[in-house]
Amino acid sequence: MPKKKRKKARSAVTINPAGFELGQLKIYAYIVPLALFMLLPIVYIFNNAFKPLSELFAFPPRFFVSRPTLDNFASLAKTTRQMVTGLSRYIFNSALVTLAVVVFTIIISSMAGYAFSKLKFKGKNALFEVNTLALMFVPVAVMIPRYLVIDRLGISDTYFAHILPLLAMPVGMFLLKQFIDQVPDELIEAAKVDGAGPFRIYAKVVIPLVLPALATVAILAFQGVWGNIETSSLFTTKDSMRTLTFFMNTLVSANASVAGQGMAAAGMLVMFVPNIILFIILQSKVMNTMAYSGMK
């Protein structure tokens, strides 16, 4: 492989030492405080969740908790126990909807990205241009027309109302198309010569090569659906069809009371846990996304 050779050649000319040296300290002096700064939101969420009410309302507000308690979680649990619709229902709804959206977004976007990148068909460019334009559009502008579409399809108050509107993700398709563009045509030609059809090429050649990009799109799709309140507030009327995010949000706004703030802080931490888990699982892949884009 010439690639290996090149790597060797490159490491031979690098100026930087392999180990730790004093010269690196200067960079650390800048980068460590900034990195800690990036951690602030998470530290804040954790601290807030364990603050007793007196500290939540302290003025001037304090960042760190001094007397941590579990009161907020207790009151959150108590409130949810009094709900007509159980918490488990919301969790189930959220999990189902999130899983479906992430999985189907990946499948649909990668298939479309593959077709736009490597297959030839009529109207391909025009369609892709429309997608690029859609990237720039304000989502609010299509809120009510979307509702009308859902209404006409007769899928309001079903899981489809949560899932279908989020599947068409212009950003995801755009990203994946850009990455599939980087897959060498020779590879696909070779597969074709060996007798593979377009679907086989898609499943066996393209997908394994763009796995990092798929991870990125998965995170984006997850965020789009997990934090989404709109589908619950607009497309559903039954409480039993709404998601956990929506429920947590109503807790914050409906309980403008003192105790509500504590519950909101605890709820914020609960809502945040899946985010961080997914990030930890996929982070190495996401980070590689960009490095792989240099595929030559």
Partner: peptide, 20 residues
């Protein structure tokens, strides 16, 4: 190509292009 983009196109038309 059309076959591959069909699911995406359908969704895009119904929930993006048409509402737009």
């Amino acid at each position: 190509g059309w076959l591959f983009t069909l699911p995406w196109t359908l969704g895009f038309c119904a929930f993006f292009a048409y509402p737009l």
